[in-house]
Amino acid sequence: MVNLSKNSLDRRSVVKEILIGYKDLLVISGLGSSSYDVHASGDSDTYFYLWGAMGGAAMMGLGLSLAQPNRDVVVITGDGEQLMGLGSLATIGVLKPKNLSIVVLDNGHFGETGMQVSHTGLGVNLAEIAKASGFEKVSEIKTNDAVGGISRQIKERNGPFFALVKITSESPDRSLPILDGIELKNRFRKTLGYPTC
């Protein structure tokens, strides 16, 4: 697939750089390529991959971050998934959980459904919306040098933190995580020391 966007960052490398070497991180990934990116970086029991529920990733992250205030929680999702849950940025902005980070991989397209141009490809800026919604820290990441700053912000826990990562619209091979939602839920809770019910 040719790169239809003007962005230069590779989605897999960016996600790998954020996640590698941070095993305890609690991660929610939005459906589609973001889930494949997280899985491709190496699976973990504290990764919860969404295969549906479009627009819900950031809100799952919010519930998780409020339940686990002493852990870092990161939502990794795409521009299309976040666009469906725009209001959730306002909901997070008023509650301001310090331990929640939202990383949006923005290729300006609906990648899973035929690469139609999305709103962000037509000029909508999610970082500005996050800023106006009350996120404490907002970064627009356009170069490889800036990618390392994402992990630093996550660990500083001065959030909520929002990173808009400008990735190319190339689609790497799918890396498929567990599809069984009950198994995903149970392994996540077990790792945190909770029973299945």
Partner: peptide, 23 residues
Amino acid sequence: KPIVLTTEEEGVAVVCGAWLGGD
């Protein structure tokens, strides 16, 4: 921990995230 939402489906996802974390 009350959470004011902009639309109800946000709350459905919050409930699920909360339970993952034990709340």
